[in-house]
């Protein structure tokens, strides 16, 4: 019971935070907090199987899926605070409070009777107990949900599929394009050198050198350039190549 009273405020706070968070990623993480706390509560109520499933499936798979999509959609985007529909916030909070109070009172009024407890049901263990029910009484639902999962997976593939609007460029098309770019714009033919080629050191942070000794600008991450984490060491390098010159 102590577990409950510790976790309950945390859950409520996290839920409220999720609803009011400005950035979507913060909302996702707060939801993770709620879900983990729920898993613990399941464990406290003699449902170890669900405890594990909640963490693996819900928090680990579903929530991660949310995060992936958030990143695809735009992790930087944040909702504006201004509400566009007039009276929506007021009506929502009003109805929400009304609903919550009503249900809570309703719950409090119900007499549940004696709590039987799951000792007898879990006699052979929680997982066998669930297995017995799942494969006898709920076998049909089990089969249907498996079909549902397959359908969902197919559905996701279909929805995310992008049709080709133009024919796929063949090897020849690519080669022609490369030649033309080199002729018009001087883009280098051939693959780009990986960083560290033609250098003394095989390091990611050292730029690649072109055959004529100059630095290949495309081998340096633009991010480093933007952040200003670059240092021009061309002088030191040429000095290294001609040790006799220094005296």
């Amino acid at each position: 019971m102590i577990v409950f009273w510790i976790l309950a405020p945390i859950m409520v706070a996290a839920a409220l935070g999720m609803v009011f968070a400005r950035k979507a990623v913060h909302a996702a993480l707060l939801l993770a907090v709620v879900m983990m706390s729920l898993a613990v509560l399941y464990a406290a109520q003699d449902a170890p199987f669900l405890f594990v499933v909640q963490i693996i499936v819900y928090t680990g798979a579903i929530l991660m899926l949310f995060l992936f999509v958030l990143m695809l959609v735009g992790v930087d985007s944040s909702d504006s605070i201004v509400e566009t529909i007039k009276g929506q916030r007021l009506a929502a909070t009003g109805f929400g409070i009304l609903f919550g109070v009503t249900v809570a009172i309703g719950v409090a009024q119900t007499t549940v009777g004696a709590v039987v407890g799951l000792d007898e049901a879990n006699a052979d263990g929680n997982v066998p107990g669930i297995a017995v029910l799942l494969f006898s009484k709920y076998i049909f639902a089990f089969e249907m949900t498996s079909a549902l999962l397959i359908t969902a997976a197919l559905g996701a593939m279909v929805l995310a599929h992008r049709e080709r609007l133009s024919p796929k460029p063949t090897q020849r098309d690519l080669a022609e394009r490369r030649m033309r770019d080199w002729a018009d714009q001087g883009k280098p033919l051939g693959p780009l050198p990986t960083p560290g080629v033609y250098a003394r050191h095989n390091a990611v942070d050292t730029p690649a050198l072109l055959p004529d000794g100059s630095i290949a600008p495309t081998s340096v991450s633009r991010v480093l350039q933007v952040r200003g984490n670059m240092r021009d060491v061309s002088k030191e390098l040429t000095a290294l190549d001609e040790p006799d010159k220094e005296s």
Partner: peptide, 17 residues
């Protein structure tokens, strides 16, 4: 608990789609 289990499965499918 079985019901909760099924809710989870369906929620998973729903989230995917």
């Amino acid at each position: 608990q079985i019901a909760a289990f099924f809710v989870m499965v369906v929620a998973a499918a729903e989230v995917v789609v």
